[in-house]
Design a protein around this nucleic acid. Structure first.
Lengths: 152, 152
DNA sequence: TATTGTTATACTCTATAACTATA
DNA sequence: TATAGTTATAGAGTATAACAATA
């Protein structure tokens, strides 16, 4: 019996949504990480790209705040994306402390690939659920996420 | 607008269960981590304690396999728990390569506190859901977790 | 030969403080 | 004085390889 077995977990872990959430969340992260590895990207790079694709140019502090990552961490992520010409930092004439970060054309193309991979990974993750359950599950997750935001 | 705002996320992130799972999973981990910090424990310590509380003595390779952590990582966790006299490693007479790891009395007492905190944290996490939704949510999470196990 | 516990290494993520330039 | 971007550091989680003792 070498394969990890959820049935072997005590009820104190497997019966609680908290533990399962952490465990399944890490699994989702790992699957997505594996999927975008072929693009030479990590999940946090992808989050930035997807955000910029829909919201246009943003200051770094806004990217960090929306994605719940540290300002300090974002710097290196943007350095890497900029080195591959996927994003560019431009001066913001209205506030010279801020950088307007936006996708390049190459960045927009890669982001489309990322979005397709995200859909594919979600399909694998929710493979066991029928369409009604998927919708319900997404809705509940969204409510918990919103509640978590307010608690901060 | 300084607070992180889920509404500001693009549909490509907020509309997908994968991203929400990762985000909510990290939130759950952080909440539990904060809760057990007063006991001087981290979540991975607690997972080991809760497992031993229900399953009795286990070999290290079985603990690691069940909790999906690395054998190599578990060594340091057990060193720390043993230094606080919460668990003990005993010789297994039937296979002298193995250690039988079990809770001490002090460990059992601390584990009871951990279990109570876990219940409390889950209550905060699922505060927005009515009882029927909680049950359904747990059930769906369990199915995804089981599916993830089989995929490995 | 294979497995168990162990040590060591490295990479990512996270959290924090302090510096600069601008406001 | 406060904020935006940056740099640096340290802790925790994760992944991997290699070793000694034992099967």
């Amino acid at each position: 019996m070498s394969s990890p077995n959820l049935e072997a977990l005590p009820q104190a872990l497997a019966g609680h949504a908290g533990y399962l959430l952490v465990r399944v969340g890490k699994h989702a992260q790992r699957m997505f990480s594996l999927a975008v590895d072929r693009l030479g990207l990590r999940p946090s790079h992808c989050d930035v790209l997807l955000l910029l694709a829909e919201r246009g140019a943003l200051a770094q502090v806004d990217i960090a705040g929306t994605l719940l990552i540290e300002r300090a961490h974002l710097v290196a992520l943007l350095d890497q994306l900029e080195a591959r010409d996927l994003v560019k930092r431009e001066a913001d004439p209205r506030d010279r402390r801020r950088h307007a970060v936006r996708l390049t054309e190459a960045g927009a193309a890669v982001t489309a690939e990322v979005a397709a991979l995200a859909v594919q990974v979600e399909g694998e993750l929710l493979g066991e659920l029928d369409p009604a359950e998927r919708t319900l599950f997404r809705e509940i997750l969204g409510r918990i996420a919103r509640d978590a935001d307010e608690g901060d």
